[in-house]
Nucleic acid binder design. Sequence first.
DNA 1: TGGCTGCGATAACTTTTAACTATGCTAAAT
DNA 2: ATTTAGCATAGTTAAAAGTTATCGCAGCCA
Lengths: 301, 301
Amino acid sequence: MLNLTFKQLRYFQALVRYGHFGHAADACAISQPALSVQIKELETALGMILFERTARQVRLTAFGAEFALRVRGIVQSVDELGDLARAARGRLTGRLRIGVIPTIAPYLLPTIIGALHQSHPDLDIHVRETVTPRLIQELSDGRIDTAVVALPLSEPAFTEVALFDENFVLVRPDADAGKPVPSRDSLRAMRLLLLEEGHCFRDQALSFCNFGGAVPREGLDGSSLATLVQMVGAGIGVTLIPEMAVRVETRSAPVCVVRFNRPRPSRTVGMIWRKTNPLSAQLLELSEVVRQAGADLRKLP
Amino acid sequence: MLNLTFKQLRYFQALVRYGHFGHAADACAISQPALSVQIKELETALGMILFERTARQVRLTAFGAEFALRVRGIVQSVDELGDLARAARGRLTGRLRIGVIPTIAPYLLPTIIGALHQSHPDLDIHVRETVTPRLIQELSDGRIDTAVVALPLSEPAFTEVALFDENFVLVRPDADAGKPVPSRDSLRAMRLLLLEEGHCFRDQALSFCNFGGAVPREGLDGSSLATLVQMVGAGIGVTLIPEMAVRVETRSAPVCVVRFNRPRPSRTVGMIWRKTNPLSAQLLELSEVVRQAGADLRKLP
DNA sequence: TGGCTGCGATAACTTTTAACTATGCTAAAT
DNA sequence: ATTTAGCATAGTTAAAAGTTATCGCAGCCA
């Protein structure tokens, strides 16, 4: 295997430029013998003479000229590596793969992506939308870099940052608009529509109603909050949704929303990433963007 | 000024490849601590972390991935400096890594290697036998120098040299020896044995029979021409093989071969290499050797 | 011709860098 | 709780690259 060093290539370039060992050595801040030796070793490694040393001047051989052409490209590429690093230092670069659970993604993502596009214009953002256990797996495997989920998780390998708390509101048919706000216990007697298994939001809703392990009813699970609200609009039952979903989801169905009296159901939204991720500092900054997006979203309704 | 060494880049590449300090260090023939230190110095020089070290695996950061992309180009260019020097010395020397597809290798290689041994006695020949897409990949990565494949490929990064055209012949059981030569259409009604997916020869055979996308039959794919011929000998069906395979493959099974009437199925065999490879002139000479080997082989049967 | 002079090569020695071995530390796995 | 796997660190040694001093050769000028 070829045993070239970048130093040799740089020395070579200097010698090409000055055509004089002493001057080139000065330019490289080394002594003339050091340069002589390195050039000689380069020639030995290549098995080719690069310079013709005449009494008055040092000049490239034909092969040396061809060689110099390529060396220029290489040295330039190496210098660009440094530029690349300098440009990237302390900043999110390249690809960012972000996971979001389905009960957050449709509401928060537009804002987040918009904000990220402004703050990091040349960041290549990939989004993965799926339930928490899968996100955890993909985070562990390094298939995503961070995730926005409901906390707490208590995964020891992950850093968790809580961003904001968010209440759940009751969605019921327009016809029920005047009725009193049900208590968590009376809720249990109503026909409560839920997301299908696997969504943490389902478990949070169930837990608020104090259902033990017993699922209230079979066969009425929706695959998204949008579906649930449409079902409520059709008079099939009632459901809970997080505040951030209110604006988007209640526009297209004859339903009304109402806050609960205390104690109110709620969830904590946060961001997670591997503790080992070297971009921790940057991800923490990113989490501020997400927090702000969430705050804006909950202010409106 | 950036103080990278070429060694560090090679070590970096090894670590990218293996994702494991110990294994990468072995591949570089140094100890694990030496590798750790060099990677760390590289990271320090750049001011950027290249790898995320988790307990079980080492994986590139987003920046590291970007970096790796550029490093590949640089390392390849440096390797080509060595090739350039070799080429300038006028002859192929040292190592020549040549890839060959499986439907050519067993028949053409003995002749090629014999001829190369005569014309370039101190050439260290490595052979890689695998399907075309892999050869293309390995050629791009600089893991082989040239490949003998079926043309055309139309890879813009490669030089293609067509060497010779070669017909395919029908192989059927000895019992069928007297029967008339089937047309390409009647062939479709027979039980045609094919190589498994991935071999270009399979596609060429299918295309001759005018099978659209529909594969004729399931579960009868062979992993080599030798297997196919043996299956034919056992009376399971018929198959196509290239002329160069006739002598070797039909010796050990009760089968007979017959040429097709026009239009005859055929393939073009050629050699490819990276356009940037400074050994182009030598590879062109080499291609003459291969052409001659192919001609000799097809003259005999 | 003979002594300068400019310049690259060589030699002997020193410093710096990169390697090795041994060992530590942390996080999975059992 | 203990073992295991795997990267990091420390201390030491070997190799590489640099230094100064000196050589040798070719051209130059008297």
